[in-house]
Simulated assay, not measured.
Amino acid sequence: MTDVIFTRLTRTDAADLMDGLCDVYADAYGHVPGEDSTVKTAAFRDRATGALNARNYELVTASVDGQLVGFVFGYSLRPEREWFAGLSPQPEPGFTDERDGQRTVVLAEIEIRKVWQGRGVGHALHDEFLRGRREERATLTANPIATSTHALYEGWGWQRVGRIPGRPGAYYSDYEVFVLPLPLGGGVR
């Protein structure tokens, strides 16, 4: 992998980078025939801007020669968020308990510019972000029909736990839910 520089940033820094994050997001998805990419990018901007106020928000960027090539951001899951509401199949008792809001980190977005996809940048970004977290586990959701993405996550150690319905205004009507025990590699914190 070329000299990729990873930088851990706060919400203030992330707000200043929002246009760049939107550019990476749009590039990562490319143009889909029949789809207005500005609508999807605007929805991303709304999600990304809203996430800035989340508890323990953090952004990790990947840059090469000063050019932003990818990013990941996430935050601690609040108990009142009900992230796992409607999870099917029903999980074991206690699985959805967030207790003090420090149990689970949400990996909200991970995006890599098209030209950098398949070069290990995404996996390295993923690991860099999760190594810096103090929660017991991580969670993410994915498009229910994106089976190649599911396989990628499972290859990185994520476990599929079921499906949840999308919230009103969500891009998909339902989402696959994945979890990953932390710390990465099962080491001691």
Results as ranks from 00 to 15, higher is better:
105 V>A: 03
10 T>Q: 11
88 S>T: 11
112 I>Y: 06
52 L>N: 00
135 E>N: 02
111 E>K: 07
167 R>M: 09
62 A>K: 07
128 E>W: 04
104 T>F: 00
109 E>V: 05
161 V>I: 13
46 D>L: 09
188 V>Q: 09
66 G>Y: 12
127 D>Q: 14
105 V>C: 03
92 E>P: 09
113 R>P: 02
72 V>E: 12
149 T>M: 13
38 T>I: 11
14 A>R: 03
49 T>K: 06
136 E>L: 15
106 V>S: 01
41 T>G: 06
39 V>C: 12
140 L>H: 06
160 R>L: 13
137 R>A: 01
116 W>V: 08
13 D>Y: 11
88 S>L: 05
174 D>Y: 13
50 G>F: 04
36 D>K: 09
127 D>V: 07
66 G>T: 11
85 A>Y: 04
89 P>S: 07
57 Y>H: 01
121 V>L: 05
117 Q>W: 12
50 G>A: 11
124 A>K: 00
181 P>E: 05
117 Q>P: 04
162 G>V: 09
63 S>I: 10
174 D>A: 08
151 A>R: 10
67 Q>V: 15
59 L>C: 01
151 A>C: 13
48 A>G: 02
121 V>M: 02
147 T>Y: 15
20 G>V: 03
157 G>F: 13
130 L>E: 03
78 R>Q: 05
160 R>H: 08
140 L>T: 06
123 H>P: 08
136 E>N: 14
105 V>F: 01
16 D>S: 15
102 Q>A: 06
52 L>F: 03
19 D>Y: 04
145 I>D: 11
6 F>G: 01
108 A>I: 01
171 Y>F: 14
55 R>E: 03
42 A>E: 13
150 H>R: 14
145 I>W: 14
55 R>W: 04
161 V>H: 05
180 L>Y: 09
163 R>P: 04
26 A>Y: 11
46 D>R: 14
63 S>H: 14
67 Q>W: 15
96 T>N: 08
189 R>M: 07
118 G>K: 10
165 P>R: 08
71 F>Y: 15
28 A>T: 06
171 Y>H: 09
33 P>C: 11
186 G>W: 10
171 Y>A: 12
44 F>A: 00
3 D>I: 03
152 L>G: 13
113 R>Y: 04
78 R>L: 11
144 P>H: 14
158 W>N: 06
84 F>R: 00
175 Y>D: 08
77 L>V: 03
85 A>T: 05
30 G>F: 12
169 G>T: 07
167 R>W: 08
53 N>M: 02
187 G>Q: 13
20 G>Y: 02
182 L>G: 04
69 V>E: 14
56 N>W: 01
99 R>H: 10
26 A>L: 15
42 A>P: 05
80 E>Q: 14
113 R>L: 10
61 T>Y: 06
62 A>R: 04
81 R>T: 01
184 L>G: 08
164 I>R: 00
34 G>F: 08
104 T>Y: 02
31 H>L: 13
103 R>K: 09
168 P>K: 07
102 Q>N: 12
186 G>Q: 14
169 G>Y: 05
98 E>L: 05
86 G>I: 03
14 A>G: 02
174 D>P: 06
143 N>T: 13
132 G>T: 14
29 Y>Q: 10
162 G>Q: 06
89 P>R: 08
131 R>Y: 15
117 Q>S: 04
176 E>S: 15
109 E>H: 06
32 V>R: 12
135 E>L: 00
45 R>F: 02
64 V>Y: 14
39 V>E: 13
13 D>Q: 15
53 N>S: 10
72 V>M: 07
57 Y>Q: 00
58 E>F: 03
